[in-house]
Computed example of a mutant assay.
Amino acid sequence: MRAPIGTFDVVHPAPDCLDLLTAPVADAVRNWQGDVPAQDLIYVDSDPEIADTDAFVAHYGRELLDVSANCVVVAGKRGGEVSLAACLVLSHTRLDVNGAVRKQLGARKASFAPVETATGETGMEYGGITPIGLPGAWPLLVDSAVVDREWVLIGSGRRRGKLIVPGKAFAGLPGAVVLDGLGG
Score class of each variant (00 low, 15 high):
N31G: 09
H59M: 14
A75C: 10
D148K: 15
R94V: 12
P15N: 11
A85N: 13
A171W: 02
G120N: 09
R62A: 14
D27I: 09
P166L: 00
L41I: 14
P13W: 03
D35W: 02
V152S: 05
D52P: 04
A69R: 11
A110N: 00
L84W: 09
P24E: 11
G181I: 07
T130K: 12
G76C: 10
C71Y: 04
E63R: 13
A26F: 04
T7R: 14
R108C: 01
R158W: 06
R160T: 10
W138A: 08
G128P: 12
I42K: 07
N31M: 07
I129E: 07
E150C: 03
D96E: 12
V147G: 02
I164D: 06
T53W: 03
V89F: 02
V67M: 06
I129Y: 05
G120H: 05
L41F: 03
N98W: 07
T119V: 15
R158L: 10
V147E: 03
Q104L: 07
L173N: 10
A55S: 12
G79W: 07
K109E: 00
A69M: 06
V152L: 03
P135W: 03
D96F: 02
T7N: 15
V178M: 05
T93S: 10
Y43A: 10
G184L: 09
L90G: 04
A86M: 11
D40S: 15
D66S: 13
W32G: 05
C71P: 08
V72Y: 01
N98Q: 14
P114L: 07
Y60R: 13
K162H: 08
T53A: 04
L179W: 12
G99M: 00
L90I: 05
V165C: 05
